[in-house]
C-alpha cells in the first residue's frame, strides 16, 4: 500500500530531522566531558576568578580572558549596534528602492568576508594607527572592538531589517498623517513597535562577537593581563583556546576545553535570551 510507504518516509525524515538536535547534544556532551573535570579540580571560583594562567605549573585561572571577552564584546557592540541599527533604519525607512539593492547586498557581502581578512586589515591599518595616535602597542581592546564591530554589523543589520519590516505600514502612515516628521515617526513609532526584534538582533550580534576568534587573535595582542584601558592589549576566551590548542596536552588541553565550557555557557544564555525575546514578539502579534 502506497500510504504506508509515505509513512516510512516520514519516519526516516523525522530521524534525519533530529540530526541537528543530536549534534547539539553531542557537542554539549563532549565539550563538558572534556572541560568540566578540570574546573571542578581547580574549584569553580578559582577557575573563573583567579588571574593565574600558568599551564606549566598546573594553574588555570581565566579571569583575564573573561574580562577581556567582556570588554571587547561591549566595545564591538557599541560600534556594531550604532552602525547595524543605523544601516537597518536607512534601509527600511529612508532608502529609495534602487539604493537598497546596492546597500543590502553590500552588507550581506560584508558577512561573507573571512574573519582572517578582517583581522589582517586590522593589523595593517588599524593597529599602526592606534599605536601612532593613541599610544600603547596598538594591538588593543580598541582595535579588537572596531574589527569585531564591523564583523557583527551584518548580523545586527539583517535581523533588525526583518524586525523593522514587520512593522505594519499603517503605523507609519498614521504617524506621518498626524504631522510627525519621518524621523519622529521612526523614533517614536517604528523603533518602539520593533523593539523586541531589535533587542534580539543586539543579543545575537553579541553572541557573534563573543564567539569570534581569528580576527581577535590577530589584533588584540593576547597578553594575559586584565586590560586597563582601550589601548591595552587583551586576550579573549576564544583566542585563548585557538592560541594554545596547537601544542596543549593533558591538563592544559582540558583547561582549554574548560575555557570552551565557559564560552559555551555564555553563548547559550545569550541565545536563550534572544530566542525568548523574539518568541514573545511572535506571541504579541502575527507576523
Amino acid at each position: 500500500m502506497k500510504i504506508s510507504q509515505d509513512r516510512v518516509i516520514g519516519w526516516v525524515l523525522l530521524a534525519v530531522a533530529f540530526s541537528a538536535l543530536s549534534s547539539l547534544a553531542l557537542i554539549t556532551t563532549f565539550i563538558f566531558k572534556e572541560g568540566v573535570p578540570i574546573i571542578l579540580k581547580q574549584g569553580v571560583g578559582n577557575f573563573l576568578f583567579s588571574n593565574d594562567w600558568y599551564p606549566g605549573e598546573g594553574k588555570f585561572g581565566i579571569l583575564a580572558m573573561i574580562v577581556g571577552s567582556l570588554f571587547v564584546t561591549l566595545g564591538a557592540m557599541f560600534i556594531g549596534a550604532i552602525f547595524g541599527f543605523g544601516c537597518a533604519i536607512v534601509l527600511t525607512q529612508f532608502c529609495p528602492r534602487r539604493l537598497v539593492s546596492i546597500i543590502k547586498p553590500a552588507i550581506e557581502l560584508l558577512a561573507g568576508i573571512p574573519s582572517v581578512v578582517y583581522g589582517s586589515i586590522g593589523v595593517v591599518i588599524l593597529v599602526p594607527f592606534i599605536r601612532d595616535y593613541l599610544g600603547g602597542p596598538g594591538l588593543s581592546v580598541l582595535a579588537a572592538s572596531i574589527v569585531l564591530g564591523i564583523m557583527v554589523l551584518p548580523t545586527v543589520t539583517s535581523i533588525s531589517v526583518d524586525a523593522l519590516q514587520a512593522v505594519p505600514r499603517a503605523y507609519r502612515e498614521g504617524s506621518i498623517a498626524l504631522g510627525a516628521t519621518q524621523w519622529q515617526t521612526t523614533w517614536m513609532v517604528v523603533l518602539k513597535a520593533a523593539r523586541s526584534g531589535l533587542v534580539a538582533a543586539f543579543i545575537l550580534g553579541m553572541g557573534r562577537a563573543v564567539g569570534e576568534t581569528m580576527a581577535v587573535i590577530m589584533v588584540a595582542g593576547n597578553t594575559l593581563e586584565i586590560p586597563l584601558g582601550l589601548t591595552s592589549p587583551v586576550r579573549t576566551l576564544t583566542s585563548n583556546i585557538a592560541l594554545e590548542m596547537g601544542y596543549a596536552s593533558g591538563a592544559h588541553r582540558q583547561a582549554l576545553f574548560a575555557t570552551g565550557v565557559v564560552l559555551f555557557v555564555i553563548i547559550m544564555v545569550l541565545n536563550t535570551i534572544a530566542l525568548a525575546v523574539s518568541h514573545s514578539k511572535a506571541a504579541g502579534g502575527r507576523r
Partner: peptide
C-alpha cells in the same frame, strides 16, 4: 536544536 546550533561559535565547533 537548529537555532542553538546556529549560535555556537566556530571555535567550539573546532574543539
Amino acid at each position: 536544536g537548529a537555532d542553538c546550533l546556529a549560535g555556537i561559535p566556530s571555535i567550539i565547533f573546532g574543539l
